[in-house]
Simulated assay, not measured.
Amino acid sequence: MNALSDVAVLIPAFNGQADMERTLASFSESSTVYVLIVDDGSTPPLVAPFIDGMHIDILRMPQNGGIERALQAGIDELSKRGVRYAARIDAGDLATPARLAKQRAYMEVHPNVAVLGMWTHVVSKTGAPLFDLTPPTDPATLRRTMLARTCFTHPSLMLRVDAVREAGNYRARYRAAEDLDLLLHLLERYDGANLPEFGLYYELNEGSISASKRRRQIVSTLRLQMRYFRAMNPPDWIGIARSFAHLMLPYRMLRSLKARLLSQKETR
């Protein structure tokens, strides 16, 4: 029996055929890996590559509508197919061996966890290491600090499909911050956690949402922070202050500062 038969990798993609193929080829699992690529109006349309040990389907959107709508359509499609767990990753990122099996095993034992991330190596476009993201792992700390820092790396997540739909699915209400919107909805009803091991190589590049749509993302994040603000929770104040700082300071300066601080932390 395929141990990953109820898991599907969910990749929204707009163009970037080569990056998508490189990402899929990075998966190394002992069972067949099922993949749903949501082609968000690529020109030319994306083509499913042949990769041994993978079953790849493509859901084509009628036109480019943005990552929020692509993810929403992907979750709805997986729900129709009876898939229990959606494993997120983006074209250009790489998975570590047995990532899916490790995440599924944890979620099977922890039924109240609806979202499970992993620690992340952040690398440049050429694969050079930049810094690591090692957010908290336990549900209580994540819930307390959710508005203060990056508690989950979105492309490292495994999500319970039914829980995502119950929480309202991905939405376009908070553009470029659709992941935070969904996570905050999920944590109102369920727990979230991170496995304390690395599951992803996240490619940081200037064309990412965080760079090209930075202001929109920060404004959406601030709106969410204000909506979920808890005056008696000090980390919420810190998160709002950080968002205002991000609005004021140049992206490259913030990225350089973050990399320097994380590197110093790792050498202590």
Rank of each mutant, 00 (worst) to 15 (best):
D132C: 14
I11A: 05
V109M: 10
R99H: 13
V38C: 07
S156G: 12
A211D: 00
L46W: 01
L4K: 09
R260F: 10
R173T: 14
V83Q: 07
N205R: 10
V161S: 09
L78F: 07
P12A: 08
H246G: 06
N169S: 15
I238T: 14
A231H: 08
A8P: 00
L254H: 02
Y251A: 04
L157C: 13
Q17G: 01
S31G: 14
N205A: 08
D181C: 06
A3V: 02
P250L: 05
A8V: 01
R216K: 07
R88M: 15
T150V: 13
L36M: 05
D19T: 03
L59R: 05
R60L: 03
V164D: 07
A3I: 04
D76S: 13
S5F: 01
E197N: 11
A86Y: 03
G16F: 09
E206A: 11
A13D: 07
V109K: 14
R255P: 00
I89P: 08
R242H: 13
K125P: 00
L59V: 02
P12Q: 10
L186H: 07
R216P: 00
D191V: 09
A245R: 10
R175L: 05
P45E: 06
K80S: 11
Y228I: 00
E68S: 15
F198R: 10
G82M: 04
P155M: 01
P111I: 01
R255L: 14
M226Y: 12
A177H: 01
R69L: 13
A105W: 03
L78C: 05
G239D: 04
V33T: 15
F229Y: 14
P250K: 05
S28Y: 14
A172S: 11
R143V: 06
E77V: 00
R268F: 07
H110R: 08
M1N: 11
L71M: 14
I89K: 07
M232R: 12
R81T: 04
R171P: 00
R149G: 03
L249A: 11
A98W: 04
F244G: 01
A13Y: 00
L262C: 08
I11P: 07
A241M: 13
E197S: 13
R104G: 00
D93R: 02
